[in-house]
Design a protein around this nucleic acid. Sequence first.
DNA 1: CGAAACATGACTTATATAGTCGGGAATCGG
DNA 2: CCGATTCCCGACTATATAAGTCATGTTTCG
Lengths: 157, 157
Amino acid sequence: MQNGAVNISAKAEYAVRALLVLAADPENKAIPGEAIARSQKMPTKFVENTLVELRRTGLVASQRGASGGFRLGRPAAHITIADVIRAVDGPLAEVRGDRPENAVYEGPAQHLQTVWVATRASLRSVLEHVTLADVVAGKIPKRILKLTEVPDAWRPH
Amino acid sequence: MQNGAVNISAKAEYAVRALLVLAADPENKAIPGEAIARSQKMPTKFVENTLVELRRTGLVASQRGASGGFRLGRPAAHITIADVIRAVDGPLAEVRGDRPENAVYEGPAQHLQTVWVATRASLRSVLEHVTLADVVAGKIPKRILKLTEVPDAWRPH
DNA sequence: CGAAACATGACTTATATAGTCGGGAATCGG
DNA sequence: CCGATTCCCGACTATATAAGTCATGTTTCG
């Protein structure tokens, strides 16, 4: 009972922050892995390894050699936070290691599946609708900002 | 990259299902751990251990000896899914093992914290508003049901 | 008293997480 | 074409969590 039910892993968090650094360059020029990691005070090799993984999924492009580095694979406005998290951590939401739609129950738990599906849907409604460009510009979509304005949204429950 | 970013653990899922069995009894009489586990085909000892944990948090009450068992600690309409998950898995949402409000960033990642807080808020908006009684009765709040009606809500993305 | 049932803690096994490390392969600048 | 830069790849480690199992003790009803 140490980890929360939802846990954005270190790897996923680093990945998002690294891509935000790339997204912040309007010319999308190559930036070395070490510079990316240093600018956000993240563990260099770990982040580099993760960036290479992201290249395989096409989210970033890379160039070797002197004056090489990483750049975004497509415009920052077309990469959502969900895209990044899925690329490094797999499906957004699972129940007992399986997808919510496969969680089928009997008896009094019958309708629990609906709750899990709704949970995933609510996650998607946030993470699939914020792009890297949004975060860099500080322009979070209004509907999502509103969620942070409910009483106690910034406090533990 | 085996586990999704959000993972309802086996323990949490068993806990919810066990409490649903209790919630389904309108007289709230004591039900033995073994009967609870068997009725939902869950591992007996594991579930029993979890129920004892839930007793410590007050969500269930227990009685030893012959004709003993477990019963809900308060009305099913006053226990939300979030209550159960928190009791067994801790905080609903964390980022790199810490609470979202503590995730503070510099530079282009500055506004990322807002995204994490919104994510937690959206989770809460579902899990804190469905009670055990709702699930047993199959009466999921309309606002939440609506989430499951968006296109592809029941399909992997 | 004896059977039923909760209570507790130790134990096991497997997997995931969060990294580090070393060397190889490409590429650019001079 | 040489050498510095930088990505690329795989192996390795340590720690923790997850998901159970098991043995034993303690209450309590009938």
